[in-house]
Amino acid sequence: MLEIKGLKAQIEGNEILHGLNLTVNPGEVHAIMGPNGSGKSTLARVIAGSEDYEVTGGDILFEGESILELAPDERAQKGLFMAFQYPVEIPGVSNTYFLRQALNSIRKARGLEELTGKEFLAHAREKARLVELPDDLLKRSVNVGFSGGEKKRNEIFQMAVLEPKFSILDETDSGLDIDALRIVANGVNKLRGSDRSIVVVTHYQRLLQYIVPDVVHVLVDGRIAKTGGKELAEQLEEVGYSWVNGEMKTAQTANA
């Protein structure tokens, strides 16, 4: 589904990703963990097509085709989705109004009929129930005045409405209380399927008890430093990243 090969990306002249490799097959759920500042959000934003970053090497293939030349909206139309670590507040733009436009441009790109206001609302209400998002948040301006937890739920709500093939969720669990975490995880699990892939970026093993990953990666200093099964997350929780760092250093020295 998604294949990242030797990806190098920089922002304002600082290289953050130093040749990152990652392959996610259809139907798989991966978790990416890693220390602050290691490049997890950078990876997510580069996949989504943020123009803040310059890709200086490698490639990102989605369903076998490079997406590096595509604009963010074209990537979304192909079925990519990123849940923001820090969802943006947009005063004056209503949540449903913009989301209908988003869904319709995705549908249009796929040759499907656009939804009428009424049809869309029915679809949106159903998905809002999935993440227990109160109805009045649908009408409000995007994320404006939402609590931290509401913002995160709104991200998963949008994901549910847009039904992407590949999603990367950047710390969607941060700032959620235990109930909200369960709701969000439930929402994500309902979207799991043989044709959908999900990458969750998280610092906490707790989320992974609800969304059980097939593969766990550790991202350190712009590279995938370690890959394993779900037990890797538990190990990390116990001993922290230092041992991964240690292994990395040894590996690098050995390479040199």
């Binding site: 943020s50 803040d52 909206d73 990537r75 979304a76 989705f81 947009i90 733009v93 436009q101």
Partner: peptide, 9 residues
């Protein structure tokens, strides 16, 4: 970017 990343041209 937020709007575009959701598919809005």
């Amino acid at each position: 970017f937020y709007l575009e990343s959701r598919g809005v041209p």
